[in-house]
């Protein structure tokens, strides 16, 4: 036995190693099962899984990649928050500074391309779930959660699009949020909104309609920037995180990855 592997065994038999990883080296059935069961991250998997469920051509690994891209977004996003201030005075120049002053300044690139990739990956994931009929009983509700995740992913991308505060950002968000003006009843240019009134006093104006609620103003300005920032960095990611947990939990409760009965 070489010195090297003797050292390895000594480490693995010691108290420190044993306190962190309670299982031995995953070499046989029992320790491999333990490796999954005793790890908080891995135990989201079952110990054993049907063969058809791990075939790459069945799942395309797209759900997993969507999740992984989400993690990339979280990590790069948190790092970006160190450099970025969501105010009209600073936002644009902070982004510029990222390019000029930050060592290995790839953060913004990774975050942006990762976001695009996540949108594509989630669409592909939905396509594969549809084509394999995996939304059918007993997985109906997990499909519902998936749809909500899809909406939130798009909103996550959309709110992030504003933050660089350049022309591209401002006008894309202007185009997008203008539609809220036309929400029936609660948008000031929406159908029938002028009849929403109490005692002849109309209630829906540009200053208090659906778009105003979205932008905290009648145009894409400083309030909108702050609002989108908070939604983008805190609120939506939290909800997405919770829903992903539910999504994964349900996969197992629904009997694992679908397969022919």
């Amino acid at each position: 036995m070489s010195l090297f592997s003797r050292f390895g065994d000594w480490v693995r038999e010691g108290q420190v190693w044993g306190s962190v990883l309670r299982h031995g080296v995953p070499r046989d059935r029992r320790t491999r099962a333990m490796a999954i069961l005793s790890n908080v991250f891995l135990h989201l998997h079952p110990v054993a899984i049907r063969k058809s469920g791990i075939r790459l051509s069945f799942t395309w690994c797209m759900g997993g990649l969507t999740f992984f891209l989400f993690l990339i977004e979280v990590v790069t996003g948190v790092l970006l928050m160190f450099y970025y201030r969501p105010t009209v005075e600073y936002a644009y120049f902070d982004i510029q500074g990222l390019r000029a002053h930050v060592t290995l300044g790839l953060l913004r690139e990774m975050h942006r391309w990762g976001a695009h990739a996540m949108v594509i990956a989630i669409w592909l994931h939905m396509l594969r779930v549809f084509l394999t009929g995996s939304y059918k009983p007993p997985r109906e509700f997990n499909w519902t959660i998936g749809v909500i995740l899809l909406v939130l992913t798009l909103l996550l991308s959309f709110t992030g699009y504003l933050l660089p505060w350049d022309q591209l950002a401002m006008w894309a968000i202007t185009v997008g949020s203008n539609m809220a003006r036309a929400t029936p009843l609660i948008g000031h240019e929406g159908p029938l909104a002028q009849y929403v009134q109490i005692g002849g006093v109309p209630l829906v104006h540009a200053g208090d309609d659906a778009r105003f609620g979205l932008l905290a103003g009648t145009f894409v300005g400083p309030n909108a920037l702050l609002r989108f920032y908070v939604l983008h960095c805190i609120f939506i990611p939290l909800v997405v995180g919770v829903l992903i947990a539910v999504h994964f939990w349900r996969i197992r409760k629904d009997g694992g990855i679908s397969g022919p009965l």
Binding site: H45, I49, R50, K51, S52, I54, C61, G259
Partner: peptide
Amino acid sequence: EAGSDDKVLVWPDLVYIELIAM
């Protein structure tokens, strides 16, 4: 997809796929 009742262990069969994908 048939033979779906044959099971394999997640470690190593799935975790390695996941690692490589990541």
